[in-house]
Design a protein around this nucleic acid. Structure first.
Lengths: 346, 346
DNA sequence: TTGAAAGCGGTACCAG
DNA sequence: CTGGTACCGCTTTCAA
């Protein structure tokens, strides 16, 4: 077990290499103006003593402030609201660690609005951007410009092709869809029926991936069921409530509903007064969905922890800016399953 | 959104209050030797300027090293092994943050061994102990002695009455049992049958709580099932394998198995060759249980993230020692549910 | 190309 | 009781 006490410091390196503090610092930070020989001597000392920099002291001396901005849609969604709440609540503690958080909410379903936000941030010169946006060419180009300007860009919740971002922070949505299907198939007490698939946006990659995963498991493991074509409802509660009656009328025998939405209000309202009680699996733990689960309108929730997402995004932007390694396991966002029984206290 | 740049420092306080740095430090750290009037003046300055101490700088100046020790049983358990692995893997990064981790594995099911470990640590003078132990009077007294010696003690995985420890890091085991029951009842395609309940130790509080939660939900929601008396197997793979054949012979119609074990090897071995294929819900994600889930021997896993547990324990011991607040939400260990589909990549 | 020295935000010793 | 000051580990002018 670890037991060493005093780690070597820059002073030790300097002494060991027979140079000054300033020179050690130069090679440590890869600054120019050091003869190759000297550099070599210092590097040898670093290795021999097993030096590892004290980042806390470094940041203190540097008096550096990190500015990170979260960019995500302004749609009326409890999930995004929870994300925003988390950012707010964490920004206090982080401001004491030289890290400033900001939020930009973009026009929902409008990639031009994302582009403007990114370009604006690039010109302001933030250090990192965590963005949730559709995968359009315009967005991709704006991200490219930001990255060219030296800004770290991480994808939030919905992935972006890896060549366009430094990290992805979110769940594996295909697995999430598969998980929902497995629960659905097991929870329904029948071997056949129709399953309704609702989504906020047919464009967003995360929703698409869920559908693929869901279909794969349903057809392989529960072939008696028919998953109906995706219905897009754009997080509009009224839209949901007006569409659903017709849907349930058109397809009789709806045994299950898989709701890949970021706002569940409309669905809950409809189900509360519906006489048909299908098995319902929804996404994201929010006050509304929690109530839905507790009241038995929902049977299970697939979720991702917004607090964890925000912490991971910040850590990842930080380590990327500082170009130090990160702990991949800690940053992996879990696909959480909630039943009424394992709901965390509110 | 947050946007302020420069926080007030001790220098600002000193100037504002018209005293020296040393005096500010005295009141900040509640050291003696300051006239009430002066103290009052400094406190007012602190409030007025909204000062909040930079702990990184403080630790640097103090050159303080935190010594924390994890104490848990030495039983042949994949779960405890995973805990140990996490401690090892995190101790590297932490040693760069002035935090040293140690491990003491006690004789399994022997509270005297725990007592000796605690007393030894108290005499060595560590800063914090994270302990997993049965709730016996001797253990309770040893914890009391350690705390009296100024050591922060947190309970790990299995709770200890709140008056005996500073924090509990682990899941709500009653809820975990309820969750298992809900899944069990839903997954079994029948309305009646026997359910087997296996446990490592009938003494440990966590296992007891699971049983209570499990029974509550089974009898309320799935009354057709009979949950058999608890069978204690002490994490002994051979014991499990030798007992189970008889159990399955004695009780015909075993529809489900709830395994509250910290080592699943024996159970998996038995089930692999068994002709009866009950629904099986087990605890903890380990290489063995992962394989069990993937091969269909297990239907679901209830788990707690050992990485998270270690990080939380360290943060909690640290904040308690420093007497600064912690983020309760971040420290809440989740009751995770794993199906084959949402298993994280190995 | 190199080094001396000041300073980041705090802490702690010593003198008065 | 209070203040002066060196120092924690590292960075960053400014001169040499």
């Amino acid at each position: 077990m670890t037991t060493t006490l005093s780690k070597p410091t820059v002073n030790d390196i300097a002494r060991h290499a027979g140079v000054s503090l300033a020179t050690v610092d130069r090679v440590l930070n890869a600054r120019a103006g050091v003869r190759p020989v000297t550099r070599e001597r210092v590097n040898r000392a670093i290795v021999e003593l097993g030096y590892v920099r004290d980042t806390a002291a470094a940041n203190l001396a540097r008096n550096r402030v990190y500015r990170f901005t979260f960019v995500f849609p302004d749609s009326p969604s409890e999930f995004y609201d929870s994300l925003e709440a988390q950012i707010h609540s964490q920004s206090d503690a982080l401001s004491n660690e030289r890290t400033l958080l900001n939020i930009v909410r973009t026009q929902a379903y409008d990639s031009q609005s994302v582009v403007e936000a990114l370009d604006e941030l690039a010109s302001q010169g933030v250090d990192g951007i965590a963005v949730n946006a559709p995968e359009t060419p315009a967005v991709r180009d704006a991200i490219g410009r930001a990255r060219k300007a030296g800004i770290v860009v991480v994808a939030l919740i919905s992935d972006l092709p890896s060549s366009f971002r430094d990290h992805f922070i979110g769940i594996d949505n295909r697995s999430a869809g598969q998980t929902a299907a497995q629960l659905m198939g097991r929870f329904i007490n029948a071997n056949e029926g129709c399953i309704l698939f609702l989504t906020s946006s047919r464009l967003a990659r995360d929703h698409l991936e869920r559908r693929h995963g869901f279909d794969a498991v349903m057809s392989a493991r529960f072939p008696g069921f028919k998953v109906l074509p995706t219905i897009e409802v754009r997080d509009d509660a009224h839209l949901v409530e007006s569409i659903l009656p017709n849907v349930f009328k058109t397809w009789n025998g709806i045994a299950g509903v898989y709701a890949s939405l970021s706002s569940n209000h409309g669905l809950i309202e409809y189900l509360r007064q519906s006489v048909i009680k299908p098995i319902v699996i929804a996404h994201e733990l929010t006050p509304a969905s929690r109530a839905g689960l507790q009241q038995g309108v929902f049977d299970a929730l697939i979720s991702q922890d917004t607090g964890h997402i925000v912490r991971s995004a910040v850590r990842l932007m930080r380590t990327t800016v500082e170009s130090v390694p990160h702990n991949a396991l800690q940053e992996r966002i879990r696909i959480e399953i909630f039943l009424k029984e394992n709901l965390p206290p509110a």
